[in-house]
Amino acid sequence: MTSVMLDAGAPFGAAPPSARPAIVTRGLTKRFRGGQVAVDALDLSVPRGAVYGFLGPNGSGKTTTIRMLLGLVAPTSGEHELLGLPLGEALPRVGALVEGPAFYPYLSGEANLRRFDAADPAAPRATVRRRVAEALDRVGLTAAAAKRYRTYSLGMRQRLAIAAALLGPRELLILDEPTNGLDPQGTREVRSLVKEIAAGGTTVFVSSHLLAEVEQMCTHAAVMRAGRLVAQGSMASLGGGQVPRVRVRTPDTADALRVLRSLGLADVRADGPEPGDGVSAELGGVAPERVNAALVGEGVAVRGFAVERPSLEDVFVRLTGEGFDVDG
């Protein structure tokens, strides 16, 4: 009954803020001076609790979108909402990493975090010491806390930026290319950190131009291309058109084909002309262990058995009709 009053003037419906998506945009458009359209009529919807991959080649409008979400850049048209709240109320609950780390080189890592905490009007001064120490600990920078930022390596800088995004209890993390410049070890650490944060209930919106990265971290994804949204949805729904295939490596090609057909699998075929090339088929609803048991039961020598799910890249090639140029 009070919900109408509650949401008077709210652009995104009558649901209470906590029930609305973490991020919503409607027709969000940015045309820079000179006429270049960086973002074109973007309709995003990021559900609460999701790890949302925001994919696209460099220059496809990802960073401009993030800047608009954070109120750094004013949209030419369209609207957006974070956590169902007015921007000023939402931002203290949002941690952000935008276009790489930026800190005061002459301050220590710790002093830098204190500086940004002081800029947050909702952050309690009394707890800053503990929160800074905790954030540094989470990214493994405790040992370097007193060192000047100037002396930090690229990976340490990136981690400090993530620590800055974790200074308070956040409901939403917006991470723009969080693994940029990190070595494989650092990339793994960031990935597990994101998973850990998401497990705590925080919605994570992570932009990337690396398909594999999004595939490993995210529950949902959206794809940008030249400022336009090409696809968005849960990973399952994005991959929905493609079914997993079972691939069997065996010298007994003919027998294997026969068994697979008898199980009712679709698109059964030999993968090559040679006897050792193996066979494959769409798995459909059949359990892979049943397939293997049937093969072995019929005397097929199974040397390799794999279930292959379509990679995100396959999906995007299908969706966009072209390859995903990761180098942009």
Partner: peptide, 18 residues
């Protein structure tokens, strides 16, 4: 120039306030 402005404003420091 140092890029810290975007983080201050996203904190959010508030433009008039800053």
């Amino acid at each position: 120039g140092g890029g810290t402005l975007r983080y201050l404003l996203a904190a959010p420091a508030g433009r008039t306030r800053l």
